[in-house]
């Protein structure tokens, strides 16, 4: 299989301009098959901007992004999603006045995924049993933790070849964060490649095998999560002390 020889996603020297300012100057990273990779860094480091640019939701000002071996420049989020790059956005971005079930169904965005809706639904509900219970409820009436679970499940419905998770623990109570990460652990073990953007470094490092540290729109460090855990660079990126 050729896919085992090349990365799923490779990002080289990505630059992104955002309204007036450049949020990302020089970000590079790779994701290999079956791998879970985290992007770490304080708020404003350029993590979300990088993901959205890779997805095609923001214009790329420089650098190169390859997904499954193809250059992605100029592709729309729709086109990227069709190719299997599924983004679970920061703040969940659900459809609050649609039911849980409808939200899930819409996640099956490709023809292939739609054909397998039933099986995917079973899988999602097994991963997050609460969603099965609440399936006829409007998504807007769920609690924050349930909404996050729904967002992840909606992403899985699209049969991702790469799942990009943006701040899945944002605003959640610690107990709920544990639940969400338990489910993410199962997703990783099932072999789905993951990019995780997370402020809660601890969980991210436990879940992923490798990580990159971003600061001021640049990749400043990379390594295995074990290496990063002991890194002073990481600490200073978050706490601003040297």
């Amino acid at each position: 299989m050729s896919t085992t020889l090349s990365p799923i996603l490779s990002v080289e020297r990505l630059r992104v301009k955002y309204d007036l300012f450049e949020a990302v100057f020089d970000v590079s990273f790779e994701v290999w098959p079956g791998e879970a990779v985290c992007l770490l860094g304080s708020n404003g480091a350029g993590k979300t901007t990088s993901l959205r640019a890779i997805l095609g939701a923001l214009p790329i000002a420089g650098g190169r992004v390859c997904f499954l071996g193809d250059d992605t420049s100029g592709k729309s989020p729709g086109a990227m999603t069709m190719r299997g790059m599924i983004y679970v956005p920061e703040g969940r971005e659900l459809f609050p006045s649609l039911t849980v079930l409808e939200n899930l169904e819409l996640g099956a965005i490709t023809r292939e995924a739609r054909a397998r809706t039933r099986a995917s639904l079973e899988l999602a509900c097994e991963l997050f049993p609460i969603l099965a219970e609440r399936r006829m409820q409007l998504a807007g009436t769920l609690s924050g933790g349930q909404q996050q679970m729904l967002a992840i499940a909606r992403g899985l419905m699209g049969l991702p070849r790469l799942l990009m998770l943006d701040e899945p623990s944002l605003g959640l109570a610690p107990v709920v964060v544990e639940q969400v990460y338990a489910a993410l652990g199962r997703i990783v073990r099932s072999g789905t490649p993951i990019i995780l953007v997370e402020q809660h470094v601890h969980q991210a490092l436990e879940l992923c095998q490798r990580g990159y540290v971003l600061e001021g729109g640049r990749t400043v460090q990379q390594g295995s999560t074990a290496e990063l855990a002991g890194s002073d660079r990481l600490r200073s990126a978050y706490l601003g002390v040297n």
């Binding site: 601890h202 490092l205 855990a229 002073d232 600490r235």
Partner: peptide, 27 residues
């Protein structure tokens, strides 16, 4: 600020509990 940067509670909020336990002074 110097107290905050060393406060285990703050570090665990930002970096997680396991990292808060490693000694900061190493830096």
């Amino acid at each position: 600020p110097s107290e905050i940067a060393r406060d285990p509670g703050v570090i665990s909020v930002y970096l997680g509990r396991s990292l808060a336990q490693t000694p900061v002074d190493r830096a």
